[in-house]
Design a protein around this nucleic acid. Structure first.
Lengths: 144, 144
DNA sequence: CTAATTAAAGATAAAAAGGTCTTTATATAT
DNA sequence: ATATATAAAGACCTTTTTATCTTTAATTAG
């Protein structure tokens, strides 16, 4: 469904949001230890998200990545769009370059229903919400 | 959502089902002309689907690909699984190797809803059904 | 000011997906 | 039998994705 980059990015942002509640900045190493993601690859992804304003960062000792308070309101759709683009939400299920109500592919309407439900679910889910059961050990960001 | 191979495969099968109603066998060239797909790549895909029994084929002059009557009942889930595997239906939204009710990722339940809806939609949609509006020119398999 | 620590950036590599080309096998029609 | 048309198979190439390695820039602590 999502690219690896997107999966790692979402996991990192959820972890960062949880950690930032205690005011901590986390290094790439920390983040990847806790999310089971590859370090250099994740660094690329977070640098990209940082440029786009979805996460914050600071260089130097005691530096690292973190989330500003208002960044907790960022939702999953924003992250997916930042990393994977909008094609998942707007593209044709059968890959047609042009597919619309006017010129639909055979699965246009059925697929649209699914696509829209996915889009809505992602849009209404903030990273903040996803940290709720994390500290309680009820949900996980990597294999135990 | 689906791989290119899967998109081409589905489009080819819908076209073949429609053509086979008139008893025609279609060459790769015909199929790709009508679906806007690359020939050699589509040949690979159809050869694979043929080995797996989802389409039928015959070599030689007047040969080509076609669908047996009962193959019209094949549904989209079967095609997606044959080409892309089952990970879309069973895998974790955040890419965790182990993700289940017992050990869920933060989006497990919300994602499961979407995944299941997609799965059900694909399972209840047969290629036969998708040919209905094709001859009427109401739906399309390639850009006009 | 210096050393240490961290993200940023860029170069490179490996793997997977997507796509093409060439040869072979098989069936048909003449 | 021979020529022809077709799928089947395999080798190869290109692009994208995933991942790693190295160097640079910025910040902090002492």
């Amino acid at each position: 469904m999502f690219s690896k980059a997107c999966e790692y990015g979402i996991r990192a942002m959820i972890y960062l949001t949880a950690a930032s509640k205690e005011g901590s900045k986390m290094s790439i190493r920390d983040i990847c230890r806790e999310t089971g993601a590859p370090e250099h690859f994740t660094a690329k992804i977070l640098q990209d998200l940082s440029r786009k304003g979805l996460v914050s960062s600071l260089k130097g000792p005691k530096g690292g990545f973190f989330m500003e308070d208002e960044q907790g309101n960022i939702n999953l759709k924003q992250i997916v769009e930042a990393i994977d683009g909008t094609s998942l939400f707007t593209g044709c299920g059968l890959g047609l370059k042009e597919c619309s109500e006017l010129q639909p592919c055979p699965i246009h309407n059925k697929f649209k229903g699914i696509r829209d439900a996915l889009q809505q679910m992602l849009a209404e889910t903030t990273v903040e919400q996803l940290t709720v059961n994390l500290d309680k050990g009820l949900v996980f960001l990597k294999k135990k």
